[in-house]
Design a binder for these strands. Structure first.
Lengths: 293, 293
DNA sequence: AATAATACCTGACTACAGTCAGATAAATGC
DNA sequence: GCATTTATCTGACTGTAGTCAGGTATTATT
């Protein structure tokens, strides 16, 4: 990696830290401890489960409890047991809490407006433009890949998006065969693997590897639309190949629909070459294979 | 201002905060309080005056003193009186302190490298590229303008750069006339004003306004090279016009050398029109005037 | 039905961040 | 020469952040 790139990123970090405010200044300034402000922010207008709050803020349960008690005492939130699991609790903003959050939000808007104000409209637009692009790249670099069990709710959510999208794109539409649920359920080593892409806690992509007679078959490669064009499909594919390699496969195969031109380009540029039909997938028009070294 | 721009910047801030590490995480992780780490960083390889450290970190003198004692006690720094003012003290790193700072630095490099690593080389270059541009724009937006006294050392530093640059650019070279020091010294209201541009504490530009018989004369408009192309000269000029307006001038005049094409373009696009020679400046080739409303 | 795990709470604690009220020594202004 | 200012230090203090060791109520597991 180029050393200049590292120092550039560090330099940028210094600049924005200095300008936007040393720490998470977006949470201070309403004469309330930062942790309380952040808690209010994380609870949000719709409220949130306490365990999710603890998880997202990485808090000790005792500390979290005390923060919630303090906000409750200030009349900003209410906390009630969840109906479906009365051990767990759900925190919601009161009207006063809503007002407080809106006020904090307005203050943050003002702080940001003060940063943009000195720039002329052209440079203002340019700054927001490059930051939008930088944000996407930074998010892309934060995406991680992990093999998960077929029972994962996150995978189910991804696959739902995936099938939905196929239905919209395929000229013939797409109806998942009834066998799909069973097929997914069988994707556990050594007969199958499911790879999940996550951006922080959010599932943003998936892909599966199925053990066939004498090759591995890659299917259901999907990346969330808002993260496309960032090279994540290629990384996901590479991760799947890595899983296949470790599992001892020497050949990988996959198929694709004629409507998915980008997917075909990805496979070709990743070392896959087109072969004859090897399965009876009625939605497939092209079949590919790659030998692993 | 466009509301989308504000939310874009806030969104970016969340993204980078999340990725780079909530607070100035570049200072933690060496199991040492953040304030001590930051102090080490601010002292730097060349050392620093204690009063400057206090100023830059905005610390209570008692707190600063304690931090320095702690670092001294750990054998990381030494603090000695300044020879020229034995009230003030100067903090320097010991060899151990130097090693510690280098180690912290390396850790920060590693953290940043981890962020860039998942991206392919093209996107990595693109990210650092857009962040470099964003950094310049953010710095530009942080520049402030202030009228200062002619005795200011900051102004002297700017003017030195300015004259140096004229000497390099003018076909004939440039030698400041002997009267210059006296002229600068006279720039106090109501006969003159000096405007200084600052980026945080650093002087990055200047401009002067001199009261003449029946007009105000703008001279010595200069912006540091590293901040050019960011619209700062235009802002500086506008600020000078503002000063002139408040002071009651109805006309402004200025001159410029033929070699300074950008300056001429700036003046024309800022409402100045070319007039006949109005002074005997031997280095001037163009003379401009603008009527203030 | 007994056991374990989960979600949360309380009390006691440590460490860090930051402030305030003086005190001292050196330099500056008159 | 004396008062004032500047730069720093010390002691005493408050509030926030965060941890740890238990405890209770509810749900899941066997």
């Amino acid at each position: 990696m180029h050393l200049g790139q590292i120092s550039q990123l560090r330099s940028f970090n210094r600049a924005i830290t200095r300008r936007i405010g040393a720490l998470g200044n977006r949470f201070v300034g309403r004469d309330r401890p930062m942790a309380e402000s952040r808690m209010l922010y994380e609870i949000g207008q719709q409220g949130q489960e306490v365990r999710r709050l603890r998880q997202r803020m990485a808090l000790d349960s005792g500390y979290a409890s005390r923060l919630l008690r303090a906000l409750e005492h200030q009349g900003l939130i209410t906390v009630a047991p969840l109906p479906e699991d009365r051990r767990a609790r759900f925190a919601s903003l009161t009207d006063a809490g809503r007002r407080e959050l809106a006020e904090t939000d307005r203050a943050a808007d003002d702080a940001v407006a003060d940063i943009l104000a000195p720039l002329d409209p052209g440079r203002r637009a340019r700054l927001t433009g490059v930051l939008a692009e930088a944000e996407r790249l930074i998010e892309a670099s934060a995406v991680t890949f992990e093999t998960v069990a077929p029972t994962s709710r996150e995978v189910a959510a991804c696959l739902e998006h995936y099938y939905d999208e196929l239905d919209r794109h395929f000229a013939t539409g797409f109806i998942p065969p009834p066998s799909v649920a069973e097929e997914i359920a069988g994707l556990t080593p050594p007969s199958g693997w499911i790879l999940l892409a996550r951006l922080y806690d959010e599932p943003v992509g998936c892909g599966t590897l199925t053990a066939q007679a004498d090759f591995g078959e890659i299917k259901r490669v999907w990346i969330a639309e808002r993260l496309r064009g960032l090279g994540l499909s290629r990384r996901l594919l590479a991760e799947l190949e890595n899983v296949a390699c470790v599992a001892g496969f020497s050949r990988l195969r996959l198929d694709t629909n004629e409507s998915l031109a980008e997917a075909q380009a990805l496979y070709r540029s990743s070392g896959y070459h087109e072969i004859a039909r090897f399965n009876d997938n009625p939605y497939a028009h092209h079949w590919f294979e790659k030998r692993l070294t």
